[in-house]
Nucleic acid binder design. Structure first.
Lengths: 235, 235
DNA sequence: CGATATAGTCAACGTTATTCACTTATATTT
DNA sequence: AAATATAAGTGAATAACGTTGACTATATCG
């Protein structure tokens, strides 16, 4: 056994001591995973990278998750938690739904690489059910019940996730390609025969608008307005 | 030289003869890629799989595309082409936009694994500009011009892509997990403390609805209705 | 203090995208 | 038609990836 403690840095490769027993938990791993994804690259989340981030062996994660996919699903539920942290129902159901929608947009934009992997998943996790209940509460306050309530819930929730998710995916793809954040909102067409595409040609300059959030706001307002118009007895 | 033609099957491993020069083209590769993705698995599209599908060396693809990502982008433009094949403007701008929306939904659902990789990309390809022009034509017919036209175009196009794309992603994830196609539209919560989530508990049974297209229809109608309501001079 | 199960580690495997040196089929030139 | 050039298909090699199984240390319980 000798004096291995004397010059450990010079030793073959074993610089890192073994981690203690309770060092890793699901939460710690999920936090690290989110931190790694927040650097922006879609494929940055690898077991090797997780190991480096936590000073652990890459395979240590398998003691807490049975696959990479399970880690991603846990990150998805964490994203949901972040988005509803501190949420309180507003005075009107429309304001509640607006608030929840903007929260999702903001969280997904902030953690876009993580959101890209998660926006189409149903985690069935502990936080997801909280949001679902919060949305259903607003729907209930508006006056819908039963099947109608669920249909309106579906239209709203699915739309918020889809729009926020696509924005996150575009942000990630833009970062990956080295473009500026709003890059993928810009559509710059230079057709060989402009006369074939008169409308694109006419609006060439205006198509460069890149304020994704304003578009999102417009879409949410459109849905809320249409929902309100179909309210059973709002008179 | 010699009589290698006599027993080629017995030879070491070289069963396949070398392909002729014009055998592979971008189109042929894209078609094969789409065929492979249509089998349903997200990660089925590999160079090895492409090679097998085309009877070619996996690395042959690099003579026509410089990376896997470029193949996926080409598949994206092909999806766009498929979705507008045979499209003709309808009598009213709303019917045109409905038609284009349903086409996108159908194409994305049919080729969901491919759509999952492509719905957030701006391909700037030859087919994309055709759809953009078709949408802008309907917007023009409705009466919008300039900046307003572009904003309404953004709301519409972004929403159709996001909703159809999320549906495609859910279909793919469900296939991957061995669920039935509508699996991810079902949200079945069994909370430990039902009284904490009264609205989820009350609507437990109705939450199992799985008709994604009906929801999509509702969302599109909501947007069209809201757009119509803001038309400048429709009176 | 010693047994035991749990959590972290290490080496290995099969796949993956990508690169590079090569070879051969076709198009062009003479 | 023969010679040449060049683009297109090939195969071996590499590094990184997720996952597995055998191992080994450590915290806790009796």
């Amino acid at each position: 056994m000798g004096e291995s403690a004397e010059a450990p840095a010079r030793a073959k490769k074993k610089a890192r001591p073994r981690l203690g027993r309770g060092t890793l938990t699901r939460e710690i791993i999920v936090d690290a995973a989110l931190r790694i994804l927040d650097e922006g690259q879609v494929n940055a989340l690898t077991f090797a990278r997780l190991g480096k981030e936590l000073g652990a062996s890459p395979t240590a994660m398998y003691r807490h998750f049975s696959s990479r996919d399970q880690i991603v699903t846990a990150v998805a539920d964490e994203l949901i938690r972040l988005s509803i942290e501190g949420y309180e129902p507003a005075a009107s159901w429309m304001d509640s739904l607006r608030d929840l929608a903007y929260r999702a947009w903001r969280t997904f934009a902030e953690h876009h690489a993580a959101a890209m992997h998660t926006f189409y998943r149903v985690t069935l996790g502990p936080n997801e059910i909280r949001v679902v209940d919060a949305i259903l509460e607003a729907i209930h306050d508006a006056g819908w019940r039963g099947r109608d309530a669920v249909f309106n819930y579906q239209m709203y929730a699915n739309m918020v996730l889809a729009l926020s998710g696509r924005n996150a995916a575009m942000l990630t793809a833009a970062a990956e390609a080295g473009m500026e954040p709003g890059g993928f909102w810009v559509q710059e067409y230079r057709p060989a025969h402009p006369e074939e595409f008169p409308y694109v040609t006419e609006l060439r300059d205006e198509l460069q608008i890149r304020d994704g959030f304003a578009v999102f706001q417009g879409q949410i307002e459109a849905l809320l307005m249409a929902m309100k118009a179909t309210l059973p007895s709002s008179a």
